Amino acid sequence: EVTIKANLIFANGSTQTAEFKGTFEKATSEAYAYADTLKKDNGEYTVDVADKGYTLNIKFAG
Rank of each mutant, 00 (worst) to 15 (best):
Y32N: 03
K21R: 11
I9Q: 11
A61W: 08
Q16H: 15
E30T: 13
E19N: 12
I4C: 02
Q16I: 09
E25R: 03
Y32S: 03
T23M: 09
A31I: 14
E30I: 07
I4Y: 01
F60R: 00
S14T: 13
G53I: 02
E19L: 12
D48F: 12
I58Q: 00
D41M: 13
A33R: 13
T55H: 05
L38C: 05
G43Y: 03
G53H: 03
D36S: 05
T28P: 01
N57R: 05
I9S: 11
I58A: 01
T3K: 07
A27F: 00
Y32G: 02
K5C: 05
E19I: 12
A6M: 12
G22D: 07
N7Q: 09
K26E: 15
V47H: 03
G43Q: 03
E44V: 11
D41H: 13
S14P: 10
T15A: 15
T17S: 10
A18P: 04
Q16M: 14
F24R: 05
D51N: 10
T37A: 13
A11K: 12
L56V: 06
G62P: 12
E30K: 06
D48Y: 09
N7D: 04
K40F: 09
Q16S: 11
Q16G: 10
E19A: 08
A35S: 06
L8S: 02
N42H: 15
D48V: 14
T37H: 11
K5E: 06
D51S: 05
I58D: 00
Y54M: 07
F10E: 02
A31P: 00
Y54H: 13
T17E: 11
V2A: 07
T55K: 06
S29K: 10
A27T: 03
N7M: 09
G43E: 04
K5S: 09
A11I: 11
S14D: 08
G53C: 03
A33I: 12
F24N: 03
S29C: 05
K39M: 11
T46W: 06
F10G: 02
K59Q: 10
K40R: 09
K52I: 09
A11S: 09
Y34P: 00
F24L: 12
E44M: 14
D48E: 15
A18S: 15
N7W: 08
F60A: 00
I4K: 00
A11P: 11
E1A: 07
T15D: 08
Y34H: 09
F24V: 10
L38F: 14
F10C: 04
D36K: 04
T17D: 08
D36F: 03
Y32T: 05
T37I: 15
E44C: 06
A33K: 15
G53E: 03
S14M: 14
N57W: 09
D51R: 03
K21T: 15
G13N: 10
I58G: 00
N57D: 09
T17C: 05
A11R: 10
K21M: 12
N7V: 13
L56N: 01
N57I: 15
F20R: 01
Y32L: 15
G62Y: 09
V47R: 02
E1V: 07
N42C: 04
T28W: 13
A31S: 03
T17V: 15
E19G: 08
F10I: 04
E30P: 00
G62S: 12
F20L: 02
